[in-house]
Every structure is written in structure tokens, then in C-alpha cells.
Amino acid sequence: MPTRNTSPVVRPGNPGRAAEGGTKERARHGAARRRGRSERLAPYVLIAPAVLIIVALRLYPLALGVNFSFTGDGDANGTAVGFANYLELLDDPLFQTALANVGLLVLLLPVAVAIPGLLATFIYLKVPGHRFFRSVYFFPAVLSPVIVGAIFNLMLAFDGPLNEFLGAVGLGPVDWLGDPGVAKFAVVGVQIWATFGMALVVFLAGFATLDSSLLDAARVDGASLRQSIWHVIIPSLSQTIQFVFVTTMIGMLTSMFGLLYVMTSGGPEGSTYLPEYYIWIQQGQMNRPALASAASTVLFLIMLVVGLLQISVLRRAGRED
């Protein structure tokens, strides 16, 4: 594919002799020369609005925010304070909790990936009702975290259905959203409930590319289900599994705001803080935009690691195509 043109009348990106012939023919007219220039600029015209918006409203704010994070708040607004905001962050117990909760999410990540993976395996193996299960499981994934959070506010209320059910079998009651030791697990549980369908669908797309004769061969050789999963499914789907790991992690880091906002407001006792909620509070409630920017930069660094991982996965996927 030609990437640049030496002759000014030949339109860019016009491979093939026939096309060049057509251009030469038209070049006799003056109009065609003007058109040639407009044609050459066309790719830039087509992409300009997207580039402008992405640069002005995503990349520029990113740079601006990093810059903010080294300035002061309030009276010190605009003056350089070096790493003072970052030091304050590390000292803030709420931010420490937020980072510790990120650690908790990383620890729970294998569970959040294994559940949809296992369910996808059973759906792929066509357990009775697999089509129905697929539709039902996927549904919560399209609901807003706000709606999910609002629904679970009702479900997990101290006098709500879940405690009632537990009471009926002789357990509980548990203060799901009021006990600092329980609330974070409750929120993560709801997050998994709300997103496992997304991962499930990705897994099923991976299964669609799986060579079913491999599984048949394993079965003929007398492999148990566990052996089949371990020795056939996991190696064949390694790429899908990596993709799900990374997207689930990104989802946990950036899409739990709605749940936190509706279900716990970061409480009880600040136990359900995540970096994104901390940023929101410092910016909107505490009027500390520079401190919030420092927290944003920390979150961005975490995301960068996850993102680079993802790009390398995508690259590998591209190469193997």
C-alpha cells in the first residue's frame, strides 16, 4: 500500500493502475486539480473532528490535571507546592483505605473472572436451559450502576429481603451496608453480580473460536470435566482469559462510582472508599481540586499499568490473526 505520493495529481491511497489512469484523464481539467488537493486532504478532514475533541477534552485535561497536582489549594491556589499533595494523600487515612480496597479488588479478581468463566463453560457444554441462562445472566450488565445500587439498597436493607431470607433459614441478620467489615464485601459482591454477565459473553465469544474436536478427543481419552477445563479449555482460551482479567480490573477501578454513591457514600466509617470516590469527594465536597488531581494522577498510574498490559494482549491477538 503506498503511504505517500510523489506526483501531485495522483490521489493518495489509490492503488492499482486503473485508478491512476482515471486520475490522469481527469487531470486535463482545472477542476480536477482542485479536486485532487481536496482529495489529498480528505483523510485529515475526516479525522480532524475526532482528533480535536480527543485532544482538547481528554489529553489536554490529563496534562492539565498532572500540572494541577503540583499546585496548592485554597490560598496557595496556583502556586507550586512540589509533592506536598502526594505526601498529604499518603497521610490521609481515607486514601489509604481507598488504596487498600484496590488491593482487595485485585485479590478478589480471580473470583470475579472464575465465576463467569465456569458459567460460560457450562453454557458452552449446553446444560439444559443454556440459552435462557445466557440471556438472564447478561441482563444486569446493561443496567446502570445507579439502578443496581438502588435495587440493592432495598435488597440489603437491614429489614430487607436478604436478611428475611437468612432469618427463615436461621441465620443473620447481617448489617450489610452498615457494618464497616461487611459493607465493602457487599459492594464488591454487587459489582460482581452486576458485571459477571459482561465477562460471560466475552468468554462465550472465546468459546466460539475453540476447536471442539479437542474437547471431544479429551473426552474419548476419558478426561474428567476438571481435567478438560485445566488442560484444554484454559490453554486454548488464554487470550480471552487475559482480556477478561484486564477489563474486569478496569471496570472495578472506574465503574464502581455509581454503586458507592448510591449504596454507601463511601461509608460506613469510610470503609468503602475507592480512589474514584475519593477524587469526587475532594473535588466536589471538600473543594480541594489540587489534592483531587494528585489522587487522579495516582489512579492514572494504576490504570496505565493495567492499560499497557491490555495493549500487549491486544497486540498479541492481532499478530495471531
Binding site: 481528554r58 490535571g65 494541577f68 477524587i279 487522579s296 494522577t297 490504570m303 492499560g307
Partner: peptide, 10 residues
């Protein structure tokens, strides 16, 4: 990979 939370202040 730039989440909204990261750029929301600026």
C-alpha cells in the same frame, strides 16, 4: 485508557 475520574477535575 484515560478514565473519566482521572480527568474530571481539570
Amino acid at each position: 485508557f484515560i478514565p473519566f475520574q482521572v480527568i474530571m477535575v481539570p
